[in-house]
Amino acid sequence: MSQDLYTVLGVARDADGDAIKKAYRRLARQLHPDVNPDPETQERFKEVSRAYEVLSDPQKRAAYDRGGDPFGGAGGFGGQGAGFSFTDIMDAFFGGAQGGAAAGRGPRPRTRRGQDALIRLEVDLSEAAFGATRELKVDTAVTCETCHGDGAAPGSRPVPCETCHGAGEVAHVQRSFLGEIRTLRPCAACRGFGSIIPEPCRECSGDGRVRSRRTLSIKIPAGVDTGTRVQLSEQGEVGPGGGPAGDLYVEIHVADHPTFRRHGNDLQCTVSIPMTAAALGTTLELPTLEADVVSGDGADTDLETSFDLEVRPGTQSGTEQVLRGRGVPGLRGTGRGDLVVTILVETPTRLDGRQEELLAELAALRGEEAPDGNVKATQKSVFGRLRDAFNAH
């Protein structure tokens, strides 16, 4: 170690850890054997790696600054005390976590947040339009009442893992031309938890949770539609080790209605009337969507259950009447859609003798005994009119 390690990395003696790490990354990118395979560059890379190993470790750096041997007398890049973490090289090229390149991740916690859950709920059109409260049975993971989520049988508790001594990780060392490369892997004995449950709870088999069916009350907001999801916070799956529960999402599916069809916030319905009613005009009594709410238990009986629809004389089949504000309320209270009523005129198919006489007399009075169909010529296009004008000349 004849050359000054600070000079090898090109940093000042009072450089902090970040400056040392940045210098090492820069040099490692330039000198790595994969980039420059010549022997001289490899030796230079070893010197840089050894300098970084010392200066990135506070204890070794302090020993070096005092004039001691940071390798404890072993000496040499590949000696007994030498070696650097494989994470150091990865940090040089990809940038590792702050706070020490060789730092491990430590034991992973047994307690983790549970997964979100999704269920589908079918509701009536009136419930989707005006809102409702429904009771919902769900089957999810809940905290084990026997062990209260810690996974250990009553009277016992987890103990530190003897293999990794509670670290949750074990080191694996391999020798290469770079020296000893040390990697950290999750401990197989404790699966990375750092502790072992010697007597798992019989109820949950050490998981800290069991499956259970429970009943929830869900409030369906007014204006939801098929595909809308209602979120119930912390009502999903309880996490392992009694961890916090995820969220429960209820996806709404609106059932078909016998009278109304929904299009956005508008409602549509079709009404059939006789030919005579279309000719003379009439008044129809139509049900409202609120009628479904009134028919339910404990519903507001002050709601309007029907309304009068005026059909003007001479109404043609396919005529639409738009009734403002009789549709579905907006999901966030943004007004209310319309009701579109389509009128279909029914032509009688079976007539007795007297009815035929009366219709024939009406046709005679209107001069419609032999109608010509009132065929109209198709409007010519612009190009057709230009072509006719050109041919005329």
Rank of each mutant, 00 (worst) to 15 (best):
Leu331Ser: 10
Ile197Phe: 00
Val375Arg: 13
Val375Gln: 15
Glu251Lys: 08
Ala102Pro: 09
Asp247Met: 11
Arg387Asn: 08
Ala364Tyr: 15
Ala128Asn: 04
Ala129Lys: 04
Gly242Pro: 03
Glu162Phe: 03
Cys161Leu: 09
Arg385Ala: 01
Gly353Cys: 07
Leu216Asp: 05
Val48Lys: 08
Thr319Phe: 05
Cys147Ile: 06
Leu303Asp: 03
Ser381Val: 01
Thr228Trp: 05
Ala92Glu: 00
Gly114Tyr: 08
Gly333Lys: 13
Leu323Phe: 09
Gly236Pro: 05
Gly99Val: 08
Gly242Asp: 02
Arg229Val: 11
Leu184Ala: 14
Glu361Asp: 11
Glu127His: 07
Ala364Leu: 13
Leu125Pro: 05
Gly325Thr: 07
Cys269Trp: 03
Glu180Ala: 15
Pro221Tyr: 08
Thr342Asp: 12
Arg113Asp: 07
Gly81His: 12
Glu346Phe: 10
Arg182Pro: 13
Ala291Asn: 05
Gly384Asn: 12
Thr301Leu: 09
Ala103Thr: 15
Asp207Ser: 14
Gly67Asn: 04
Thr163Glu: 07
Pro154Glu: 13
Tyr64Lys: 02
Arg50Gly: 04
Gly114Leu: 02
Ala167Lys: 15
Lys21Tyr: 00
Gly333Cys: 11
Phe94Pro: 03
Pro329Ile: 07
Asn391His: 03
Gln98Trp: 01
Arg211Met: 06
Phe45Asp: 05
Pro158Leu: 05
Gly314Cys: 06
Leu267Ala: 00
Glu310Lys: 14
Gly353His: 08
Arg61Glu: 13
Val254His: 04
Ser381Ile: 08
Gly281Ser: 10
Glu368Trp: 00
Val170Tyr: 00
Ala92Pro: 12
Asp124Asn: 02
Val382Lys: 12
Lys137His: 01
Ala167Arg: 14
Ile181Lys: 10
Phe94Arg: 12
Thr315His: 03
Gly337Arg: 02
Gly353Tyr: 12
Gly68Leu: 09
Val224Gln: 00
Pro154Leu: 14
Ala299Lys: 05
Leu339Val: 04
Thr342Val: 14
Ser85Val: 03
Pro258Ser: 02
Arg66Ala: 15
Arg44Gly: 01
Asn265Val: 00
Leu344Thr: 15
Thr215Gly: 14
Arg182Gly: 11
Glu127Met: 11
Thr146Asn: 05
Thr282Pro: 10
Glu320Ser: 12
Arg113Ser: 07
Leu121Lys: 07
Gly106Trp: 01
Ala277Gln: 14
Ala117Gln: 11
Cys187Gly: 06
His263Ile: 06
Ala255Phe: 10
Ser306Ile: 03
Lys22Arg: 14
Ile252Thr: 10
Ala128Cys: 06
Pro33Thr: 02
Asp300Pro: 05
Pro37Ala: 03
Val224Arg: 01
Arg108Met: 11
Glu169Phe: 05
Pro258Tyr: 04
Pro37Cys: 13
Gly325Ala: 06
Gly373Leu: 05
Leu136Gly: 02
Asp352Gly: 15
Asp225Ser: 15
Ala82Val: 02
Ala392Arg: 14
Ala370His: 12
Val375Ser: 12
Thr146His: 10
Ala19Met: 11
Ala370Lys: 08
Ala299His: 00
Thr301Met: 14
Arg29Gly: 01
Val173Phe: 05
